[in-house]
Simulated scan of single mutants.
Amino acid sequence: MDARSKDKTEQFRLLRRISGKTQREMAEHLGVSHATIRSWEASANPVQESALRNLKAYLVLAGKVDVIIPREAISAQDKDS
């Protein structure tokens, strides 16, 4: 698994935990199987970009986080400083 996929996996796992949802609950919320969530979090398969976007949107709309800033934006800002 490449570094970008690994980063998405770690991000997904962290955001799911922030959501307070179990893997099974998150699978239902995203419309995928529990096995899919398990495989993403075990790094067996790459996380679907659409699922990560939906999870981020859910967290913002549910008031769990104020905003999610992409890592690329933070890196770009650091370079400008």
Rank of each mutant, 00 (worst) to 15 (best):
I68F: 07
I37S: 00
S19L: 03
V47G: 10
K6P: 01
A73R: 14
E25P: 04
D7P: 00
L30G: 11
L59T: 03
A27N: 06
A3G: 11
A62F: 02
K56Q: 11
V60T: 06
A62Y: 00
R17T: 11
S43V: 02
I74P: 02
V60F: 00
R16M: 01
D80V: 12
L61R: 15
F12R: 04
G63L: 01
A27R: 06
S50H: 15
S5R: 09
V47R: 00
L55D: 07
L15R: 02
T36W: 13
K79V: 10
E28Q: 13
A42F: 04
K79I: 06
P46Q: 06
K8N: 05
M1P: 07
S43R: 13
L30E: 00
K21L: 10
A3V: 13
V67D: 09
I37R: 00
G31E: 03
T9P: 01
A27I: 02
K21A: 09
Q77R: 14
A42E: 06
A76W: 06
P46N: 09
V32H: 07
F12T: 02
S43I: 09
A35T: 11
Q11A: 15
S81W: 12
R13C: 03
K21S: 02
P70K: 00
K56T: 13
A57F: 14
A62D: 04
R71Q: 14
K8M: 10
Y58Q: 07
D80E: 12
A35H: 02
L14G: 07
V32F: 10
W40T: 04
A27M: 00
K64N: 03
A73D: 12
V65K: 01
T22D: 11
I18L: 13
K21N: 05
K56R: 05
L61C: 11
N45M: 07
